[in-house]
Design a protein around this nucleic acid. Sequence first.
DNA 1: AAGCCGGGGGC
DNA 2: GCCCCAGGCTT
Length: 344
Amino acid sequence: MEKNRAASDFLHVGNRLLEWYRNNARDLPFRQTKDPYKIWICEIVFQQTRINQGLNHYNNFVTRFPDVKTLAEAEENEVLLYWKGLGYYSRAINIHTAARQIMNNYHGIFPSQYEEILKLKGVGKYTAAAISSICFGGKMPAVDGNFYRVLSRLFADDFDISNSRAFAYFSELATLVMPDNVGDFNQAMMDIGSEICKPKNPVCGECPINEDCLAFSMQKVSQYPVKTKKVKAEDLALTYYFVHRNGEFLIQQRKDDFIWKKLFEFPTAITAEMEPFITGSKTITHKLTHKNLSIEIFKVEIDSEEVWNDFIAENQYMITDAQASHDKSFPKPLENYIQNSLKD
DNA sequence: AAGCCGGGGGC
DNA sequence: GCCCCAGGCTT
């Protein structure tokens, strides 16, 4: 970018975005409110998550947990249940922790200052900027993937967005175009990035700032943003035992490290005396962002009450069935496995 | 500063 | 198959 321009040279860009936003804002449930609780929840739900993917989760979540107090008083496992299938499960754990933070440290009143919001577990610089600007007139740009894409194209800037300094760099660029109404500006950037300045096949002909867009003028929009870091998925094999008796099966809860934090799963080992009860196995392949999973699930049908009770007692497994398992959060592939077992 | 954490949809 | 999505936490 050119370094020596006055900010006022680009301010009209931000104002054109605001004008476009007034007429083209997406009609989303959290656009009807400035309740910081609701905005907070929506910001967490939609981290690394497309609107269409998370909309039902958001609506169900705020219906069940309509305010900070309700959320803080809920059981962690119920919060996880409402996150089932959404991914990045540490968000659910953190959101619950943060609700209790607000109750304990802020008397249940959502903090209004950026620096205080930033202290909440699971809230980083992007989310703190979004909440403070949308709800409290804060003046920080909410720099996310949309900002990277729109600004890198607008200025034909090849700064690598996988560089750890990208957030600071594009925050500085954002201030060049940022008008006084930062809350609407931040949301306008999200919508322009989602509806117009899309990663693939952007609709530049309908873009309100295409006359200012350097990449567009050079017909190089597809070259931005520059991202060098490639994510490679490694292979990981998991083994589970679907230990079954009279319509019931055994589960345990995962730790909060590694994948699928605190979600439920099947036993990962059985005793030698149970091996004769294995009636079959099924291998499921499942792709995570960083891992290609190969999940082998052995079906163990126990027809001995003694073996069943001994195994449960020794390992402290929980007992559930296909219906009751709806009250617990399972990883997607295991959720699917349970659904299929219900048909048998 | 770099690695890790899900699941879904577009192409 | 590859890429990206209203990012943040851990080491």
